[in-house]
Amino acid sequence: MSNGVNVQALLDAREVLKGAPEAAQFTWRASSKWQHGVHSTTKIEKFFGLGQEQSHKNESVFEADHPAIFAAEDNGITPIEYLLVGLAGCLTAGVASVAQNRGIKLNSVESVVEGDHDIRGILGADSDVRNGFNDIKVTFTIDADASKAEIEALVAQSQKRSAVFDALTNPTNVTVEVA
């Protein structure tokens, strides 16, 4: 039975890093460049972890823009939609990993992620409205060789160990400087 997740490597890493917290310190990095209007291009390739510089196999390029109804050119998705990409990717990876660890064969895992956003906040139209999402809803549709309760437990455990779920549900210190 395999969902293609190397769970043993993850479990081994957990044991090793228990005794080596310094190696567990990662820094993820994105480099962004303004194009025109509200369009920007962000590239991701290198990161730091396990005590040294690391690199993805390939550089990834992400275009961010606003849609036409915001009077923009729509060269890419809006920045806040990238949060949905991150959440979906993270929870799905979690479902696959937990299923692998529990010996559950996945046939298909699909999800819809919806973020409710009152844009009066970013427009400054109402100071009581926040800038970010008010609510995020994720709906998974999973076909697996498992009971409904087991599938619900996969999804719950995935949230419990998700980096992006944590980053969205808890506050994080953010420092923005001018170099």
Binding site: A156, Q159, K160, F165, D166, L168, T169, N170, P171
Partner: peptide, 8 residues
Amino acid sequence: LFSGGLRN
């Protein structure tokens, strides 16, 4: 500030 993960 409380976590938004109460449901889970």
